[in-house]
Design a protein around this nucleic acid. Structure first.
Length: 162
DNA sequence: CCCTGATTCGC
DNA sequence: GCGAATCAGG
């Protein structure tokens, strides 16, 4: 098979943008796309999507340069990570499969909450841009149907937007 | 204490 | 250009 896969392909950028617009945290986006949190942040920085609301432009002193090494700091134990992965791969029941996602009542960005599926509908910025308002899974920003779509393995089709 | 956000450096 | 590490703040 020809063509290699640049880390950030179109589909990935789409998801990145959608999630970013949805107000998801870098952690959620990273886990959803399948990359590290830093990868998402790094990409956003390059794209100048970092909101620019930096906390006063950190502090680029010699400390960063001096510490810019590679010791052996093992990251802390995951916490929510398992919740998401478990909910995605370890689905207790297969109640939802080909069940069409019915977003009866869409909600606006500000109307989103922990109990509202944050699947972006239409194009971010559009006048009719809204989100799915279904009940999301435990520890996930999307409902069962949209969660499956988000993690569609192999499917590079534009299954979203609906 | 934990997590999230942003920046910088190395590859 | 991407990924990982570090630092700062909430």
């Amino acid at each position: 098979m020809p063509a290699k896969q640049p880390t950030w392909t179109d589909e990935r950028l789409e998801r990145l943008k959608s999630h970013f617009e949805a107000g998801l945290t870098c952690r959620e986006i990273a886990c959803d796309i399948g990359v590290s949190r830093n990868a998402v942040i790094g990409k956003l920085s390059r794209l100048n999507l970092t909101s620019e609301r930096s906390s006063k432009a950190r502090r680029p002193t010699e400390k960063d340069a001096a510490k810019a090494g590679r010791p052996k700091t093992v990251p802390r134990g995951p916490r929510r990570q398992y919740q998401m992965l478990k909910a995605l791969y370890g689905a207790p029941h297969a109640a939802v499969d080909d069940a069409p996602i019915q977003s009866a009542h869409c909600c606006s960005l500000l109307e989103l909450s922990e109990e509202r599926c944050r699947w972006p509908i239409s194009t971010p910025g559009a006048a009719d841009f809204c989100f799915c308002g279904n009940t999301p899974l435990d520890g996930l920003p999307y409902c069962a149907g949209h969660t499956r779509l988000a993690y569609r393995p192999g499917s590079r089709q534009r299954v979203a937007r609906g």
